[in-house]
Design a protein around this nucleic acid. Sequence first.
DNA 1: GACTCCAAAAATATTGAATATTTTGTGGCA
DNA 2: TGCCACAAAATATTCAATATTTTTGGAGTC
Lengths: 220, 220
Amino acid sequence: MLFGKQKPENETVVGLITSALRRDIAFGELPPDKKLKIEELRMRYGGSGHSVREALTLLSAEGLVEASSQRGFRVASATQEDLEDIVRLRAQIECMALEWSLEHGDITWEGRVIAAHHSLAHAQEQVKSAPQDRALEWDAAARIFHVRLIEACGSPRLIAIQQKLYDQSRRFRLAALREGVLDFAALKVIQQSLTDAVPKRDVQLALQCLRKEIEFDLNG
Amino acid sequence: MLFGKQKPENETVVGLITSALRRDIAFGELPPDKKLKIEELRMRYGGSGHSVREALTLLSAEGLVEASSQRGFRVASATQEDLEDIVRLRAQIECMALEWSLEHGDITWEGRVIAAHHSLAHAQEQVKSAPQDRALEWDAAARIFHVRLIEACGSPRLIAIQQKLYDQSRRFRLAALREGVLDFAALKVIQQSLTDAVPKRDVQLALQCLRKEIEFDLNG
DNA sequence: GACTCCAAAAATATTGAATATTTTGTGGCA
DNA sequence: TGCCACAAAATATTCAATATTTTTGGAGTC
């Protein structure tokens, strides 16, 4: 169980296109509500029409793309309302998962959380000075940190749900990064407290910190 | 907002195949772990290889089908472990949604819940005597009842999550029906209490009943 | 008898071109 | 302006063919 088989999406053409699309949507290169025409995407990512179409189908199930019958696909819209919905849900669901993780996680899990936090702290230091260049690493590190926090919850379906919600929230966070409205100092403090609470198994503190950290996406 | 546009899946070929597959998986005609070969499915449901494939992709995102890279698709397995995971998650998530519904739902929502319960009670009376013939109606009524309960929660994403989890749980409930191990009398009482609690806005009672009702799937 | 290695067979993944259907855009006409 | 018909664009679907990958069934070896 140490090396859980996480299927690498990069093996198949459809998987490659899906990953590329997910990234480009998250980083705003494909802005919200943009029409996604199969032909254009073929030019951009390669692959056949069918492969592109299947990737879009997949992403629409993840909520990153909206599919309207007979009228093709478009990038999911990203209104303030969407953001609030996502943040509210993430707060609830991720806290639930963290609570279960704190119940079931063993000592090696604590280690993985601390390691992930270490990487995240490092990446966050760097992204402060060079937002454009380091965004990718920071985003990846943050993602892994959140995955680690909940990966011991024991529910594969809960992990999958968190993953999807997280992917929906990335866009907003990365947009905030571009606009330079992120309070890195405060973020750092919260993440540190959160990580410290894990080995102490301080459920109350951990949940409170995680909720705050997630609600950082609401700007301010 | 009265008539929320729920896209009818039956418009497109892919949608038709998806619906048919979902139904056949739920009702056990395609048993857990069964290999799903494109060719066979084409013979059974019609449509081209691509349409079938896309339907399978969609269902794998819903958790009803498992896709392994380069090795095709199979019906998702349905172990006791799976059942427990699904029930546990549904209890948490559906209760959360119901709580929010009780906060935001207006008088017309209460009406829709009561109406759905009325239909469900009727279908449940009938399915008791003719499990095989009335399973479809009963299943549909139960589904609508649960949708109604949470539809006022105000979070489209939460509704989508519940839907997917519910679809994953249907298989187990319908299997229990076939085996005749369902305690309809107890179920009826709980559903009645649950419905009664809605207009009273008795959150505690409602959540407690809903949790019990969901945990009925654990057999016993 | 159990095992490894290899080629044939089966299944899956991917693509291209062609057709059908639907939506969208445009101009005439009342 | 509002409406209808028709053309153009986009999408949905299918068929047929090729490329990859996995599985299968021995042949030979220890």
